[in-house]
Design a protein around this nucleic acid. Structure first.
Lengths: 228, 228
DNA sequence: CTTGGAAAACCTACGCCGTAGTACGCTCTA
DNA sequence: TAGAGCGTACTACGGCGTAGGTTTTCCAAG
């Protein structure tokens, strides 16, 4: 479960991780722009100046291609965040660092992460006639594994009294929400420089850290605040 | 700009807001489950035990139907949140109340809000051959108007020193992100009671309030916290 | 260094199905 | 008797996946 081999090579004759990568990049782009159903294999092929044939030479079906984008995206994320999640430092320091890396990973691999973070469930489980694809479970498993990285740090912080008292999964939702929301408003072409990205990442990381940290005055701890 | 008439009636002969509502509900459900491209008009019709003919009697096209779901969703949201946004109380109290209502509105109109919050841009602007549909701009305008409700309160809170110093739009992103993320993990069938929903809403509202509130110790204010 | 052949890499059709939208007919009400 | 409120039957077309053919790479034998 230490997770390596984040790409699927069980599809077709060509194991060549060379042509696959190019296809995968194009696919991530296409899926990002049009969604699963909206994207077409022909469009993916066009982006690399090729035809359907080349895509189907490496991938058995559209869903396989889609899932491989997910696998790659999750792999990037886990490899970026796990080191600091399991590294040294207080829970607060680690959470902040995790959030920073998470945000950066999103912005630097925008197509992959946007596809990965948003549309998973709908196109696959719902897809009329869902065959039992093994890759789906693998993606879901990676997702859970990833959220556990946050939940673990949050739980420790709660136990130490630094973070608010709450079930870790209950706290991880708004944390990941605030971060992942980036995929819905970030425009790579408007903030292309490392400086602007750093500013965005810090802003988000600071926010989620404040959201998790316990307040000395006990405000917004769930016992006060009436309105509505 | 005081926003009434949140439904589109410029499509077809039948102005009857009776049959339209039923279609709209079914459409929201179908779009939520399958996305814009995945959903079919036939499926929408099936859900109300009817045929295509009925749907096309009220709506000119699939996109019109889709946009009307968005309009309805935005209308619900604005009507729920605006009163407290523009009401009395400190910025902190109002932000908390807005977040509460926002979360409740999502859970109580899940299909509409899930459709509205997620897929807008992709299927429409990107949709090969995007005709200049006037409804799109209306939806976008409502979106901005809604985010302004939060931005306004956040700005006031920052000015008063209660909230962190930051551009309001910069603060509204993680706030709305933490809240809207609900559409990706909430399962209506697992938390159907008012009590469970209230707990979820409070949890989220507390989180975003903490995220916005300035900390006495100055932690996570964007000037400290090195790691990664 | 050739040469042969096999496999990989890729392209060119084409079949086929699902689905948006249309044309038209029916029925009931005001 | 006109029109709202539907249903039925049909067309048109975009797109997934496939069945082959063609080119390139690779490698072992001569």
């Amino acid at each position: 479960m230490t997770s390596q081999d984040f790409t699927d090579t069980s599809g077709r004759p060509g194991t060549g991780s060379e042509g696959r990568a190019e296809i995968l990049d194009a696919a991530a782009q296409s899926f990002m722009e049009y969604g699963f159903n909206g994207a077409t294999i022909d469009d993916v092929a066009d982006r690399i100046r090729a035809t359907k044939g080349r895509v189907y030479h490496y991938y058995r079906s559209k869903i396989d291609l889609f899932l491989d984008v997910h696998l790659r995206a999750m792999g990037i994320m886990i490899e970026a965040v796990r080191p600091v999640a399991e590294g040294p430092g207080t829970p607060a320091e680690r959470l902040h660092a995790m959030a920073l890396r998470h945000a950066h990973a999103i912005m630097e691999n925008f197509a992959y992460q946007k596809v990965s973070i948003q549309g998973l469930e709908k196109p696959l489980i719902s897809s009329r006639g869902a065959r039992p694809n093994a890759m789906i479970e693998k993606v879901v498993a990676l997702r859970d594994e990833y959220e556990s990285l946050f939940a673990g740090v949050l739980e420790q912080g709660s136990a130490e009294g630094a973070f608010v008292e709450a079930p870790p999964r209950q706290l991880s939702k708004p944390v990941l929400g605030a971060l992942n929301w980036l995929t819905l408003w970030y425009r790579p072409e408007l903030s292309p420089t490392p400086e602007t990205r750093e500013a965005i990442a810090r802003n988000l990381a600071d926010f989620v850290l404040r959201g998790a940290l316990r307040r000395p005055d006990g405000k917004a701890d769930g016992k006060a605040g009436h309105a509505g």
